[in-house]
Design a protein around this nucleic acid. Structure first.
Lengths: 291, 291
DNA sequence: AGAGGTTACGGGCAGCGTAAGGATC
DNA sequence: GATCCTTACGCTGCCCGTAACCTCT
């Protein structure tokens, strides 16, 4: 009975699948089989009921599950307490919204590399709903994304709020004076992907307009900016992602009275026994995002 | 960081010695060295201060010590909770007083073999003070001996009480009628080894007699009985050890008014992280001793 | 000089991945 | 028949024990 076997068992019992546990643990399915078989032989007890398609822990297995989760949690806490950060050697899969990539993610990565030099971070950039799914499927360990993730098995921490603004090329002549929304929407708007919360909020706000304003959506925030820079449309995005362009005068903030809700970004991670590192990184992210 | 490394570390930190830990864990000193070095590399922290003759844990090491003890205790509890007794595979070193060997130890061994078929028990028979020392030195894991063991790091459980009696060969003509102590001590007494509590109690009781009664002491209880059977003296011992001889009429109980204190036997085991099995066996012993 | 910890080296075994086999829906 | 778990097999790497070395008292 070692930590590794307990970890494998916890994932098999939680996911109800040997293959799923193998995928989660970056190993092969026979390796998982072998560890479970060995654990059962070691304890002299059947732990997993394999008779059905979806495997499930037996009564004894459920007993072990709670105990194993506690042991793994305590061992992770102990590691964090006595071990040096320099010695943390692992790979953490991080999902991030593009907004964050263009704001404080570089600072965060720098900070993590300094504090955990042996920690490898695998970054996945995608829109919030995709990341939320991957988080639920345990395919990423930590995500910085828009709004809280629903689901009981997820822990979260609010990181930062970005106000939304209309960003336009100065060539459009909309900057430097108060402008009504009706005037703005004569030019196409360019914003986040259709499946995101800001797009939905914008669509709701524009519902009454006739003719219906044109709204372009891009899954790539960099592309949104590019389109605004080229005068194709007005970007609805956090000014924070375009600091350089605004400072250089290539983009300006359109002074619209009506405000859209801020974008609240949160860190989310599964409340799994290996979530301790994710929580530590979330705290670091909070520090960096707050600057 | 696995259970084995934590166990090795706990013993090194507790005993203040690599060699001592190796002896306790039935392995070699280099193996202990390697495990500690590996644990330190794994955590990226120095855990043991080797600068002095008696090694000691560093500040970080003390942190790890408390956490490791808790983890080991919890894992032992988890094993006991979900694992089957048939699967318990270990060697437990048991120290027993000779009295118990001659009474309920065979029943106890039988019972343990039934409940824990893969558990090997190494029995050491000796007098209580020797066993208490060996217990303190972690050279035995569990002891059934006379009276409680002093020491803060020891847990105990009262098992049984044996009344003391004077056992004499019927040829001496002392059985079957009330006899005063003064008459008894005309014959030499034969009892436990000089270093034991019953011997001390007897010596105190006989302090006022003149001439001083002769008292033979034997480290072997079987020899005490042999001497009584041969009429060399009167045995002061629990009748329970001589049931067969009494039933066969080869020994009789001398009816002396003044009674000596009962012998109270206890199970004792170190409050070490691996004491869980010892505790379970002590409970079994309590059941068998109570019959 | 002796006791105690470290380093070096060789053998054994557990654990993993690949590949083939069997059971269940 | 497709999916999922088990079994078989070869390999790598860890861990242990033996032995030689270093250090401190």
């Amino acid at each position: 009975m070692d930590f590794r076997s307990l970890e494998v068992f916890v994932w098999v019992a939680t996911l109800g699948s040997f293959r799923g546990a193998a995928a989660k643990l970056n190993t092969t399915q026979p390796a998982v089989s072998q560890r479970i078989a060995q654990l059962e032989a070691d304890l002299g007890v059947q732990l997993i009921d394999r008779s059905r398609r979806a495997v499930a822990p037996t009564a004894r297995g459920r007993l072990l599950l709670t105990g194993a989760e506690r042991l793994l949690r305590l061992s992770a806490e102990l590691r964090a307490e006595v071990g040096s950060r320099e010695a943390v050697k692992a790979t953490l899969r991080l999902g991030v919204s593009e907004t964050i990539v263009h704001t404080w993610l570089p600072r965060f990565i720098e900070r993590v590399s300094g504090e955990y030099p042996k920690l490898a971070i695998a970054i996945e950039v995608d829109i919030t709903p995709v990341l939320a799914e991957r988080l639920a499927a345990h395919e990423i360990d930590l995500a910085f994304l828009l709004g809280p993730v629903v689901g009981p098995a997820t822990r979260k921490m609010t990181l930062c709020r970005f106000p939304l603004a209309f960003l336009a090329s100065p060539a459009l002549g909309l900057c430097g004076r108060p402008v009504g929304l009706a005037e703005v929407v004569r030019v196409p708007l360019v914003t986040f992907s259709r499946r995101t919360a800001p797009y939905a909020a914008l669509a709701e706000r524009l519902a009454g307009f006739d003719p219906r304003p044109r709204v372009h959506a891009s899954a790539s925030l960099a592309t949104v900016l590019r389109m605004a820079l080229d005068g194709i449309g007005i970007a609805l995005a956090p000014p924070a992602i375009a600091e350089r362009e605004i400072a250089a005068g290539r983009l300006g903030i359109v002074e619209v009275e009506e405000s859209l809700p801020d974008l609240a970004y949160t860190a989310s991670w599964p409340a799994a026994p290996d979530g301790f590192l994710a929580e530590a990184l979330a705290k670091l992210a909070l520090e960096e995002a707050g600057r």
